[in-house]
Write a protein that binds this DNA or RNA. Structure first.
Lengths: 209, 209
DNA sequence: GCTTGAGTTGACTGATCAGTCAAATGGAAA
DNA sequence: TTTCCATTTGACTGATCAGTCAACTCAAGC
């Protein structure tokens, strides 16, 4: 026997990767098991259903992402730099996935959410929950920017959702275009939405020119 | 024998509706045939594969949509009113689909694009093509707004893509939240992105209060 | 009235699907 | 050493999947 839950973790990681690269509907339990080097029985020992695995997989992926977001959105960083750093992070994440799979894969959470929201309530709820968590980071940054007088007074929580909508939209476009280029538009877009000064919008395009 | 291509059209309409409500992966050829009152053989008489049907279905849906967009984006209408009208149209379309199916279904084109872009090149290309067409309407409106001095000088084509990204993002959020509410944020968001005056942004929220 | 061919039918294939299960394995606690 | 239980195995189910096919229907053109 291997480490305690080696197989379980392998199944989660494999499922996450396959679903991200392809889609929930076109990845079968057999594929996941084969790629993870596990047998069907083991799969159903750990997860009651394919749908439950998907929920667990995106949840695990989200947990792994949080330390990065905590760092990027650290209150030690200036508010507008947090947002800029987040845009760069989004780009880099897609870039890494592209190196690995050779295609733009978009946002794993919302790809799954988009595919299954109308059919699987558990997956919809989890996808929604992650969306709300991510908005909290944005809202805090906007709130601090307002406090420091960098942007006008505004509804920070509402605006955070608008910003996140733009992030999702850009990732969806990038996936369909199979081109990372448009993700570069994200930074000026979100600065415009929060009413940052024109200098901020046009300056500092990103740490890669 | 019924009208010339009655069966074919029925298959297209049924497929479009089912895929929009559910997803490509979870709608089978058998389901489509059953709902359309056609037999499997007829299906494969008209379409070489399920994937080809999907391409034809979204193309047909797009063709049906164009007269509406032509009306909304008529050059007889003031540029900013075109954009406002488009936002209302997006809301109304989702509202209609919600009445019919009882759920927010998001954008049919990009839901399919999001699900299959990494796997089916024909579907990705069609989805991309429709995306580009829609951006043209937005670009023309922005261009005219610039010409009339309603908004600052800017890269109209690039900005149109940014706007469309926001539309897609908002529709994706609405689908996952299963709530039309956030679509109401779309109008101020796109006005902000093109740099319209604050009065335009906050005024005229939509024709329903 | 015969031919033609687009459209229709229903039975069929073999693969694959999600999910089940009883029996085997093997490490840890007793 | 024996018991115990989480884990693993591989064979199994019945349903469903996309796609095939030969035979049939029927209106239109000759």
């Amino acid at each position: 026997m291997k480490t305690e839950c080696d197989t379980k973790q392998k199944l989660l990681d494999t499922a996450m990767q396959l679903i991200w690269e392809q889609s929930y509907g076109s990845v079968s339990v057999d594929h996941i098991c084969e790629r993870a080097g596990a047998k069907k029985g083991s799969f159903y020992h750990f997860f009651p259903s394919k749908s439950d695995l998907a929920v667990a997989a995106i949840d695990g992926h989200w947990q792994k992402l949080r330390p990065d977001l905590d760092r990027i959105f650290s209150s030690q960083t200036a508010p507008l730099e947090r947002l800029a750093g987040y845009c760069d992070f989004v780009y880099e994440q897609q870039n890494r996935q592209m190196q690995k799979f050779g295609r733009v894969c978009g946002c794993a959470f919302t790809s799954l959410g988009s595919e299954l929201s109308t059919q699987d309530e558990k997956i919809r709820k989890k996808s929604l929950q992650i969306m709300e968590w991510r908005c909290k980071y944005l809202a805090a940054a906007i709130r601090d920017a307002v406090r420091e007088g960098l942007v006008p007074e505004q509804d920070c929580d509402g605006k955070a959702r608008d910003l996140y909508g733009s992030v999702l939209g850009v990732l969806l476009q990038a996936k369909i275009e199979n081109d990372l280029g448009i993700i570069r538009h994200l930074k000026p877009t979100i600065f415009r939405l929060i009413g940052a000064s024109e200098k901020v919008i046009t300056g500092t395009p990103s740490h890669q020119p």
